[in-house]
Computed example of a mutant assay.
Amino acid sequence: MAGDPGGTSSGADVTDDQGTGTSGGTAGTGGMTARTLTALLLGAMLLFGIVRITANVYSYIADRHGTGVEVAASTAWMLEGTALAAWVIMLVPCWFTVRTIRPPRFGLPATVLIHALLVIPVSLGHIALMVAFRTAAWWLTGGSYHFGSPEGDPVLYEFRKDVSTYAELIFILFLVQWLVARYAAPPAEKPAPATLAVGDGSITHHLPIAEIEHVAAAGNYVEIAWRGQRLLHRATMTGIEEELMSAGFARIHRSRLVRRDAVRRVVTHKSGDFDVEMESGETLRGSRRFRGNLETG
């Protein structure tokens, strides 16, 4: 009988930037806040509860008619409506209970056990509210309400129904809180691409390391191949190697480094030396001493 809520790129020296996305966070893609989403989900639960008690009303009338007792639709609506209203109020403690007593804060067995015990005070609170609402409703309509049940003790009768309603309710509230938490979580920020600062007079180029194809020694400088250009950078091969090694670069010659994932083909000669064909189409000579560097790291 009791109802429930249902259960800018400008030249070679500027790195391309991307604007901050709006695919997540507390505002989401449509500008909706997490609080608004929560209200909408709880509103959907209430709407579902109204649909259920509507079915319960006519089912109750039909069942009583089958036993020879005629019940007015207004009476059935007051019975089911007050039960739903009591559950709406009990949503508040249930919401905080579910938010507190849940995995991983508590293990699943402990969570189930605690909620199995909590159903007792929750049910008693629901029954007390329901009786109070019904007493007030009958008084307003000029009648009096007697708390009873079709069979046995009315408290036990209502408790048996509340157990299933509570189990359904905490499961739905857990899903609502999980959805809101996922919606409100800030989007994972993509790490800024690693760059190499290359001085060119008064200009400092910040080159994305992932776009550097290879590096070659050039006297007191190194020559950096980037987007089809050659940029001179004052550094030693040893120093640049230490800086780029962790970014997937390998030395193939005492005077040359290549980015491993820019290598398209390796041709090994009888002498053990080899040629490396890069993604740009350029072919670089490698020394047999460094052949293994392309296969490790």
Results as ranks from 00 to 15, higher is better:
Ala85Ser: 02
Ala73Ile: 11
Val88Ser: 14
Val71Asp: 01
Val88Thr: 13
Glu80Val: 04
Val88Lys: 02
Val71Phe: 07
Ser74Ala: 15
Ala76Met: 09
Glu80Trp: 02
Ser74Asp: 14
Trp95Tyr: 09
Thr67Leu: 09
His65Glu: 15
Trp95Arg: 01
Leu91Thr: 10
Arg64Asp: 12
Glu80Met: 04
Ala72Tyr: 09
Cys94Gln: 13
Thr97Met: 15
Phe96Asn: 08
Val88Tyr: 05
Ala76Thr: 11
Thr97Ile: 15
Val88His: 07
Met78Arg: 11
Thr75Asp: 13
Gly68Glu: 00
Val71Ser: 03
Glu80Phe: 03
Ala73Phe: 05
Trp87Val: 08
Leu79Pro: 01
Asp63Leu: 11
Ala73Glu: 14
Ile89Arg: 00
Thr97His: 07
Leu91Ile: 07
Trp87Ile: 10
Leu91Phe: 10
Glu70Leu: 13
Ala85Lys: 00
Val88Arg: 01
Thr82Asn: 08
Trp95Phe: 09
Asp63Gln: 11
Phe96Met: 05
Val69Cys: 06
Val71Ile: 14
Leu91Tyr: 08
Val71Gln: 01
Thr82Met: 12
Trp87Ala: 09
Gly66Ser: 04
Ala76Ile: 11
Ala86Arg: 02
Glu70Phe: 12
Trp77Gly: 10
Ala83Arg: 01
Phe96His: 11
Phe96Glu: 06
Met90Leu: 14
Trp87Pro: 03
Thr82Ile: 05
Phe96Ala: 11
Trp95Asn: 03
Gly66Tyr: 00
Leu79Lys: 06
Pro93Lys: 09
Ala76Leu: 10
Met90Ile: 07
Leu91Val: 09
Ile89Phe: 10
Ala83His: 04
Cys94Phe: 09
Val69Gly: 03
Trp87His: 12
Ile89His: 02
Ala86Leu: 03
Gly68Pro: 02
Leu84Lys: 01
Ala85Asp: 00
Leu84Ile: 04
Pro93Phe: 05
Ala86Cys: 05
Gly68Ser: 04
